[in-house]
Amino acid sequence: MVPRPLPFLIAVGLSDASPLPDAGRWRDRVLAAEAAGVDLVTIDAGDADAVLVAAGIAARTETIGVVPVAATTITEPFHVSTAVATVDQVSGGRAGWLAAVRPTDDAQGLVTWTVPDDVHADAAEHITAVRALWDSWEDGAEIRDAATSRFVDAGRVHHVDLRGPHLAVRGPSITPRPPQGHPPVFVRVRDHVDLELARDHADVLLVAGGVDAAPLRAPGLLQLLELDADAGVASRVAAAEAAGFDGVLVHAPESELALQALAPVLADRGGPGRIGDGSLRARLGLPPAKNRFAQARA
């Protein structure tokens, strides 16, 4: 467990299986969660693109964390890094990324490269590449120095030159470093392969299976217990807190259901409010993200 003076985290998992996302409905659900004081929502838009749904939500919310799902197995790390950086910029530092791993059989044929057997190794390289691209522009690289006619300081924009068994990315990114540096990366843990990936590459673990999911826990990392919203959820939230989890992620087909079930818990916490600099990292109690290139130069 990360020592943190912050309140127990309450996250709501929103999903929509319809391939036709309705912007108004998504917005209403997230605004209701924000008003109730929920810390963050995860966004799973089914066959639609969750990152784009999140971008629209980011433009219309103020305090809540916005964490869309994007699968590593069927995406380019370059596009994921710029898209999540953009959601982070639009939201003023409230974006995260739920990095999902798809089984090989499920993903094969959806993309124009051959999906490898070892999708977790591919995911590890993918997340590594996304983080490297987030670092490829140092903060303050845009200098706009009229005296020397230089728009950027080329010494603070870096090639990342990653070359692994599954993918290679040269960089730099086309998008400057996002406000949070590294928007928090969430990984869902269902078995020991997931746990290994999460331990090495995630900021937040999503754990299912009740408070007895102890074998799949990783000391020192933020862990949220996944629960379904139903009548007994408030007592299970209390049990999760007692068991040492950092928070819960409550799934509900309708956010109203989750909010009703969570009402006793949320009532104790007051309104939404800003924590620290208002970023999702601050809300999670994560330290500012270091930039590998700035550190190497220092």
Binding site: A58, A85, F151
Partner: peptide
């Protein structure tokens, strides 16, 4: 000038 957001994400916003 260099540096730009992801096109689709900024359009969605």
């Amino acid at each position: 000038v260099v540096g730009r957001p992801d096109g689709l994400a900024i359009l969605a916003a």
